[in-house]
């Protein structure tokens, strides 16, 4: 960064939290910033965008926040779980291959070793990849503060870039979703051309229950085509349980294009983002047949 544009953070206090309780204590006054893998936080450190409050609360050693487990029909993933752990998890590879599929397109191995699922959600980038399949899986986010523990659905969690329903004293402790049934179908697509190490210009996740070429209870979520992940509810309704004919695909593509809100910037034009979204959806609908 050019020196004149740097706004280095002013950190007055450092807390290495050893437990969730210690972490939420340190966050209680709203003056703390949780540090997980640091791949967003440290990259934005000098940009002065206000992410780093005066107390740095390192949660990276809180073992309660780690681990992937299936309990009573639900899969629970600790907030500190890294993208690498998702990629390598035998449980997820068996029961929810959608998540490892996403992880395989996420950044590069070194970043995947650091980047956490909690950080991906809390950072609330419109281009965050992990949140798309998680929304598709019907995930809820467990938030803890000194005041309360609450669960919020991940769809609806995001208010805008960097902005969520979470308050400054809260910590994401875990995410949960029901173990998908055998006929669950989920795919994740992302702009290339690199296999990974690309910040998504468009990413898409399509999920649903696939039976006889029909997708029921579909979820269609796009990233990087609006200020938050966008759920295309009208398009979902249009394809729900229908035979996927050429006509249906054509109508679904057109409807989807009215639901997303891509912008023009130097990375890609609105036209191209729409073209990518259409191409992803078309290919994945055809693959359902």
């Amino acid at each position: 960064m050019l020196p004149q544009n740097k706004r280095p953070p002013d950190i007055g206090e450092y807390v290495a939290a050893s437990s969730v309780d210690a972490a939420i204590d340190a966050l209680a006054d709203g003056q703390g910033t949780a540090l997980a893998g640091g791949t967003d936080l440290w990259a934005q450190k000098d940009s002065g965008n206000g992410r780093l409050r005066q107390r740095l609360v390192n949660i990276s050693r809180v073992s309660e926040l780690c681990g992937i487990a299936e309990v009573a029909g639900k899969i629970r993933i600790g907030a500190l779980t890294t993208i690498s752990e998702i990629l390598e998890s035998p449980l997820l590879n068996e029961k929810v291959p959608l998540l490892p599929q996403m992880a395989n397109r996420f950044a590069a191995p070194q970043i995947r070793n650091a980047a956490t699922i909690g950080g991906n959600i809390a950072n609330a980038s419109p281009a965050a990849d992990a949140v798309l399949p998680l929304i598709g899986l019907g995930t809820s986010v467990e938030l803890r503060s000194k005041r309360e523990t609450r669960f919020l659905p991940l769809s609806g969690f995001f208010k805008g870039p960097g902005n969520t329903q979470m308050t400054a004293d809260e910590l994401i402790t875990a995410i949960e979703f029901e173990t998908p049934p055998g006929n669950f179908h989920g795919v994740f697509c992302k702009s290339g051309p690199r296999p990974a190490l690309e910040i998504s210009m468009v990413a898409m996740c399509l999920t649903g229950l696939l039976e006889g070429g029909k997708l029921s209870n579909p979820r269609l979520v796009f990233g990087a085509v609006g200020p938050t992940p966008i759920c295309c509810e009208k398009t979902e309704a249009m394809i729900d349980g229908k035979t996927i004919s050429d006509d249906l695909i054509a109508s679904a593509l057109d409807l989807m294009a009215t639901e997303i809100a891509p912008i023009d910037d130097f990375r890609a034009s609105k036209w191209y983002r729409t073209q990518m979204a259409r191409t992803f959806l078309e290919a994945e609908l055809i693959a359902c047949r």
């Binding site: 450092y14 290495a16 540090l35 640091g38 791949t39 440290w42 990259a43 740095l56 390192n58 990276s60 050693r61 690498s84 191995p109 070194q110 970043i111 070793n113 650091a114």
Partner: peptide
């Protein structure tokens, strides 16, 4: 045991 980009790893996080 994990490879990391040390440029994005806070120095204080090396503790232990």
């Amino acid at each position: 045991g994990r490879s990391r980009n040390s440029c994005l790893l806070p120095a204080v996080d090396l503790d232990g």
